[in-house]
Design a protein around this nucleic acid. Structure first.
Length: 277
DNA sequence: AACGAATGGGAAT
DNA sequence: TTCCCCTTCGTTC
């Protein structure tokens, strides 16, 4: 599930697999053939994530071939459909639309495959800076400063459900965390941002830091408290991990009222009209 | 097996 | 606002 926690997890995984290695890069699908050629033979120095954006920083070439030297960054955005696969040893035969394959050198070779991303491109420092300048603070980054985001939300007339999905306000939140954090704080997604006071927003930010951090560790989004998750009858379901996301028409876990759904910011938002006033 | 919906976001209209 | 990208997963036949 590519919300911010997945991307941070991916950055960590790629660090383990490939940082310090010189990579062979290819684009079996062909859509990133030029970029792969410029990447090929360079060493991965570090990986990083900001919101839903993944970055690899590559060293310059030292063999006299200048191609790619001005572009230290590989920028990947998975979008809704993008996926990464990886492993050690020989990579599987490429099939389907494989945008990018990286194979690291070394005693224990590792590979990473990327398919279906919204963005896969090489960037110069300045281009990356421009991109990051458009992103709000990311609850998963230790250096995040929530004050600007909180101030911006607190004076906006836009619906809080739309503000939380706006990556220039807060980055890394997706449709699941949006619905869930609003439920956990009893906030109707349709309420204007400025109806909420700074203290309320600050509490939500702190909760996002905890929830998304847990998401990185678990590799999935779990936002329900254990008491609300208990299911005396039947097997646990996938949706037990959520209060309202994807549960339209099902009873609210706390009050039993059917969960509502509505389109907001081009996505479906879910909420309980009783618990979220 | 076949189909629809989905965690996102940018370009086109 | 609508479309597109074009994968994966869950549901239905």
């Amino acid at each position: 599930m590519p919300e911010g926690h997945s991307i941070h997890r991916l950055a960590r995984r790629h660090r383990t697999l490939l940082v310090g290695r010189t990579v062979s890069a290819s684009s079996p699908q062909g859509r990133f053939a030029g970029g792969a050629a410029r990447l090929d033979g360079r060493r991965l120095v570090e990986t990083d994530a900001w919101g839903k954006h993944l970055f690899h920083r590559y060293a310059d070439r030292h063999d006299g071939d200048p191609s790619g030297d001005a572009e230290p960054w590989l920028h990947v955005h998975l979008g809704l459909f993008g996926r990464c696969r990886d492993g050690y040893g020989d990579p599987p035969d490429p099939r389907g639309a494989l945008r990018l394959r990286l194979v690291g050198d070394g005693a224990r070779p590792a590979w990473v495959d990327l398919r279906g991303p919204t963005a896969c491109e090489l960037l110069a420092d300045a281009e990356r800076d421009l991109l990051l300048a458009c992103l709000g603070p990311d609850p998963l980054r230790p250096d995040a400063d929530p004050s600007l985001a909180i101030a911006r939300i607190a004076r906006s007339r836009r619906a809080v459900g739309a503000l939380l999905m706006d990556q220039s306000v807060v980055s890394g939140i997706g449709n699941v965390y949006r619905a869930e954090v609003l439920y956990r704080h009893g906030v109707d997604p349709r309420r204007p941002g400025r109806d909420l006071d700074v203290a309320e927003w600050t509490t939500m930010w702190d909760d996002l830091v905890v929830l998304m951090g847990a998401g990185v560790r678990a590799g999935r989004i779990v936002t329900t408290d254990p008491d609300d998750r208990a299911r005396p009858h039947g097997r646990p379901r996938r949706t037990d991990a959520h209060y309202v996301y994807g549960r339209a028409g099902l009873p609210c876990r706390r009050c039993g009222t059917p969960v509502q759904r509505e389109e907001m910011a081009a996505r479906t938002v879910y909420w309980c009209e009783v618990c979220q006033g």
